[in-house]
């Protein structure tokens, strides 16, 4: 798993471009190599202690059952995992989370890509203003944006007023009170908050593209769309891969929007699987063994999806 994941780094393609002398550093002797390891030590140690060790303990926990804090090993050991198979709510929240993933991530990345491309136009004026406006949502804290969105999507709120004003709907929509519309509001919320963030990455990627390749395509008579598709996009691939993996990871672990925006409702139908994990731990009768088992399933899904994305990303090389 770990070695597969190494290429998450978008740059392995560039390794050959490294000056030949670069390789020479590590061969200069054990002492220098040791210095390198010492440089990594604080970061690696912290991740080990703050992430991997608790995760290992969570694994032990996932094999336990019991009421409250009185936990003992389950019989059979995989009881909590077995329980998950029969848990309708778990499957529903997992399906909902995957739905968010499948709909929101592609839309967001395409939007971000289009916006980045527009902003990259050298003739565009007030670039800083546009970029700021579109990025600013991700500086806002989650509680605040949840509140603003809840007010805007209220039954007698702004969104309904505008839609009825434009004669698009006859009667106000109860946005957060129905399954599909509540899921829609979560997706809109995610798009609002994260499109700008991804756009900045694409913008950065675009600025690194060799402009002469684009000029060359133009000379060959390719139009703007074709140039974008055949020249710009392939060069952005490492960046797209990076944002795709980050967004997938973020969406599978989605908690805040589900918790703050819709509170998972109505009837659990907009709840994300991470939010369900929290419910199981802190709202319902606490079942930490089961919650830990759910977290392992989330971990495996994220890792699998990352691996798939990397495979697909590599193939197109």
């Amino acid at each position: 798993m770990s070695t597969q994941l190494t290429p998450v780094v978008p740059a392995p393609d560039h390794q050959d471009e490294r000056p030949p002398s670069g390789r020479g550093f590590s061969s200069l002797g054990g002492r220098r190599s040791l210095t390198g390891w010492v440089f990594l030590l604080p970061a690696a140690l912290l991740i080990l202690v703050m992430n991997f060790w608790p995760m290992f303990q969570a694994f032990i926990l996932s094999l336990q059952t019991g009421r409250g804090a009185q936990l003992s090993f389950a019989e059979p050991l995989w009881f909590n995992y077995q329980r998950m198979l029969a848990d309708q709510t778990f499957w529903m929240t997992l399906r909902t989370t995957l739905l968010y993933l499948v709909i929101q991530v592609p839309i967001m990345l395409v939007l971000a890509l289009v916006l980045a491309n527009i902003l990259n136009n050298p003739r565009l004026r007030f670039k800083g203003m546009w970029r700021t406006a579109i990025f600013l949502p991700c500086a806002v804290s989650l509680v605040s944006y949840a509140l603003v969105f809840r007010t805007m999507f209220a039954t007698d709120g702004l969104v309904n007023d505008v839609l009825t004003g434009m004669n698009l709907i006859d009667s106000p929509i109860n946005w957060l009170g129905q399954t599909q519309t509540a899921q829609f509001v979560i997706i809109i919320g995610l798009l609002w908050r994260w499109t700008g963030y991804n756009m900045v990455f694409y913008l950065a990627g675009l600025q690194n593209i060799d402009h002469s390749t684009i000029e060359a395509a133009k000379v060959d008579g390719a139009n703007a769309v074709k140039t974008f598709w055949y020249v710009t996009l392939p060069q952005l691939k490492p960046m797209i891969l990076l944002t795709a993996i980050m967004s997938t990871n973020g969406t599978i672990q989605l908690f805040d929007e589900s918790y703050n925006l819709t509170a998972g409702g109505p009837a659990y139908t907009s709840m994300s699987v991470s939010h369900y994990l929290y419910e199981v731990s802190f709202v319902q009768n606490p079942n930490f063994g089961y919650a830990a088992a759910i977290s392992y399933v989330i971990l495996v899904i994220v890792a699998l999806l990352a691996a798939i994305q990397l495979k697909v990303g590599d193939k197109r090389d």
Binding site: A44, N51, S295
Partner: peptide
Amino acid sequence: LMGVLLLAMMIPFAATMIP
């Protein structure tokens, strides 16, 4: 090692909070 460290990104926080 970097590959291993990246795995940490995938750990849901709610799971590690109690430990």
